[in-house]
Nucleic acid binder design. Structure first.
Lengths: 355, 355
DNA sequence: TCATACCGCTTAATCGTTTTCGTATTTCCA
DNA sequence: TGGAAATACGAAAACGATTAAGCGGTATGA
């Protein structure tokens, strides 16, 4: 823990291999070899050098190492949401958290891929990533349809995407098809026949869930009137509120409403309470994601909990594998299962009149 | 947007100044000057070089630049919460988000200070930061009392802390003293005389709020029985639940409970509802932080909303100022005001019987 | 007329590492 | 004991950028 105190006004001593080499009376080459634990130097010399390095408080200059080896031990994370960044989004934040712990454990650092265009020279994601020398990039949260992203995934840097498929690119996906199927089946088994689904704005995730919803409904023999399908952007409580109102105004309102996400479900809560209805006695509600707060409010929200811990871990592991064993790492899509979190927002109903 | 395709199996062409220099028939030095817009070269030459650089898809090698200039245009963020990292904590996530946008706007990147100890050679925060060559470090969320942190703030790197004061170190603080005063005054003006406060685990933030609570209570002429003061760790809904139960069991229960944070307040909600009491009709509740969800549930939570946008922005601006103008930047503490968000969880009561 | 200043460019050193290749010393075995 | 092989180390060339110093040539001023 002993480190040299700052010496100059501006900086501090950065002890280099050169310093160690003179202290030990050997060449820098030998120091390098000792510190990197190569075995073409004497055992005793190696020990001495390492000890002196320790004493002098040596640590490597990442920039120099990087310049020479083309390895940065740094991975980029693309995290670019329109309004706020994905950081403030529970789902992504938890995934990132898990990803961070995974790669840090293996000695890598995480840097955000800069989404601002001010960086001198670098005008695109790809340029920024190459410029910084990222060993790999995790694309977690962004507009996957922008040409810049396409350029990035084709740029030759190891890439793993979350919840989106590109040709010939590793991906980790939450199983939205199975998830929606499980969720709808769950409410069906609770006796609900009239189930509405407010889905999020268009994306591959939305498409998976929506088509799974239809397929599962058909499988279960549920008829879903067109007006039971509404759209409201993800995490837009106001939109969800309004969509809910529309549903409640229907001649035959649904007995259960599925929301694009937990946040939106709370928007639904509000609409429902405003109408003087009770959850789940009068109407049932289910969310998607399984954000923490959903388990801590009353009634606890029934929702499809996505395994963010596993998602982040897999993104990290796949990315590091791609970096360290490019030849032997399969380009594949890893699928992570979620599971229904059984809260109290979905009631058991006796199936009374069929629709 | 035209970039060279990958050539080798392993990598891609990284066009360097050398390449440009041969293409233009000048020396690398001239290229460097042209690209850095220095003015000791001819205008026409500069134009030509820049154009060719553009055409060839040149962008600078950060590692090389860094090695030479000792500037990384990269700032570290220390974000180290015990259980999950602070990423999953609304308050910190929003601050980080704002910080990120602020520094990226100015051409800096953000890298997490690695909290795992596996990085070759670097065994402490300070070593990690120096090794990576961070131009500065924002300490947002960590155990401020660990010796490693102390070593870091004394290490000579520009530092800004959030919500914690070190001697001679820039800090940005949410005004917890004023915040608590405003909040307590608010509920007092609503007519509450019996106000309980469940405070968080010990920290400088907790101390500020707690002492402000006492002082304000005294100022307002409120008598706070000892048993009205409870402790429950931050964001621990279970702890808050139990503390709330204790308060409700008192002979003279409070008419209003203040919580350490919004999350905890939801724990309180549960306890209160379980007792068959209604918020705010039977008992009032206020949180602290102003997380998003607080505005989207029913009843909306009255809380002290901290200005995370401003906090993050100031941390970023101060840090960059410290980096770019070390001589002229004051070492000071910036204080950011919060404000009471008036939800529906605190009722107006007619002051009936004085305690 | 000569010293000086500026212009536009090049040369070369340098940042801290890694890595190849060469060489001197030792070891080993026939 | 001779020679090949193994061992332990050093010299030097990169990696890609920045920057001080230098150098001819022209313009300026006293």
């Amino acid at each position: 823990m002993v480190l040299p105190e700052p010496m100059t006004e501006e900086g501090w001593i950065m002890v280099s291999m050169k310093d160690i080499s003179v202290a030990c009376g050997v060449s820098v080459a030998t120091v390098s070899k000792a510190l990197n634990d190569q075995n073409d130097i004497g055992k005793e010399t190696k020990r001495r050098i390492c000890q002196v390095a320790e004493e002098m408080g040596y640590f490597p200059n990442t920039a120099a190492k990087m310049l020479k080896t083309n390895r940065s031990y740094n991975v980029g994370v693309l995290f670019n949401h329109e309004d706020y960044s994905g950081l403030t989004h529970d789902y992504y934040a938890f995934v990132l958290d898990s990803l961070k712990r995974t790669v840090e454990e293996k000695g890598y650092d995480i840097t955000f891929v800069n989404t601002s265009k001010r960086r001198a020279g670098a005008t695109s994601y790809l340029e920024h990533c190459r410029s910084r020398g990222f060993d790999g990039v995790a694309i977690v949260c962004t507009d996957f349809y922008s040409p810049e992203i396409l350029q990035l995934v084709r740029g030759g840097i190891p890439i793993v995407t979350l919840d989106h498929l590109f040709n010939n690119v590793c991906a980790v996906m939450s199983n939205n098809v199975q998830g929606m199927q499980d969720l709808l089946t769950y409410v069906y088994k609770k006796g609900h026949q009239r189930v509405a689904y407010i889905h999020g704005a268009d994306s591959s995730v939305t498409q998976s869930r929506l088509s799974s919803f239809y397929r599962t409904a058909a499988m279960l023999g549920l008829t879903i009137p067109d007006e039971y399908i509404q759209m409201s952007p993800y995490r837009d409580t106001k939109g969800a509120y309004e969509a809910t109102m529309k549903l409640l105004d229907l001649e035959k309102p649904p007995t259960c409403i599925l929301y694009p996400d937990d946040f939106s479900a709370f928007g639904g809560f509000n609409a429902i309470q405003e109408r003087g209805l009770r959850i789940p006695d009068d109407i049932s509600v289910a969310g998607y994601d399984g954000i923490r707060i959903a388990r801590h409010i009353e009634p606890t929200l029934t929702t499809l909990r996505q395994d963010t811990e596993e998602l982040g871990r897999l993104v990290g592991e796949k990315l590091l594998s791609l970096i360290e064993h490019p030849k032997t790492t399969l380009v594949e899509t890893l699928v992570v299962e979620g599971h229904v979190f059984e809260g109290k927002s979905v009631a058991s109903v006796r199936s009374t009149s069929k629709t």
